[in-house]
């Protein structure tokens, strides 16, 4: 049985790199990423699982890092927005003007990246279903949907992009 009784060191596999960090068992993954590891791309919004600004990928699936304990993430592969580099979805967010203030953007991009990885042939219905997990108070929803569709198109036509 694994156990963690008080604050201690854990190892997290983040963006392909094993990082050592000090956390309490009660610390969320979002807290560990931002306050312990300096990865501030995942944003604190509601911290209640509603807004999606803190979304990261865990084993390829989007997860709201405010609703996951850091210790729970050991033995899993975590990808944050810092782990993406000029991907199709990032380029399409720029091309389609899919943000205004930008606060929700990392969370949206990670959710979209998960969708592209898992459902590269996603229908409009599936896209809408996934995008409902994130909130943009600048209401860039039309542009974000356009960016996802364009990125899916790019990935399907040129898988190495």
């Amino acid at each position: 049985m694994k156990e963690m009784l008080t604050e201690g060191l854990i190892y997290l596999n983040i963006n392909g790199e094993v990082r050592k960090t000090l956390v309490r068992p009660a610390d969320t993954l979002l807290f560990a990423l931002r306050e312990r590891l300096g990865l501030t791309g995942a944003k604190p919004g509601c911290e209640n699982g509603d807004c999606g600004a803190c979304t990261v990928l865990v084993d390829g699936w989007p997860v709201k890092s405010c609703l996951m304990l850091a210790v729970e993430a050991c033995d899993h592969e975590i990808t944050t927005i810092e782990g993406l580099n000029n991907t199709p979805i990032q380029r399409e967010f720029v091309e389609k003007f899919a943000f205004q203030c930008g606060y929700c953007t990392p969370g949206f991009i990670m959710n979209c990246q998960g969708l592209i990885n898992i459902h590269p042939d996603a229908s409009d219905e599936v896209i809408n279903e996934w995008l409902q997990s994130n909130i943009c108070r600048c209401t860039s929803y039309e542009e974000i949907t356009a960016a996802v569709k364009s990125a899916l198109n790019t990935v399907n036509n040129d898988p190495v992009s």
Binding site: E3, A26, F31
Partner: peptide
């Protein structure tokens, strides 16, 4: 941030889980 501390256990069997509970 969760404002209180707690312990974390990850058992690998049902009997271990019940025992620690």
């Amino acid at each position: 941030m969760i404002p209180f501390d707690f312990e974390y256990y990850r058992p690998s069997s049902t009997s271990e889980a019940v025992q620690i509970f």
